[in-house]
Amino acid sequence: MSRIGTIYTYSIVHSGTDNFKDKTPYVVALVEENQQIRLAQVEGYTQDLQVEIGMKVEYLAADERNNRIYRFM
């Protein structure tokens, strides 16, 4: 069973710190899953993707700090 979250709000980031300079543009979002909102990365953004509040995203993994990573479906 895949875990699905819902985008509560988001931004497409074009200007990052040194650690993220090579990853732009990337999406950070508040994702709601089981009535809990967490800040997360959403992988798989491309310029033709219309990101919207309410969009469903699929849980991918947790990073080394146990932050959540989702991906666009």
Binding site: G16, V28, R65
Partner: peptide
């Protein structure tokens, strides 16, 4: 940008690439 991001939560926000412009951009979209 990294210096300013230290005013957020480093583990839960800055480490995910959430800069301050990104945080307030999320607020704007909401």
């Amino acid at each position: 940008t990294a210096g300013i991001a230290s005013a957020s939560d480093f583990e839960l926000e800055a480490s995910l690439g959430a800069t301050f412009p990104a945080i307030f951009a999320m607020i704007a979209n909401r």
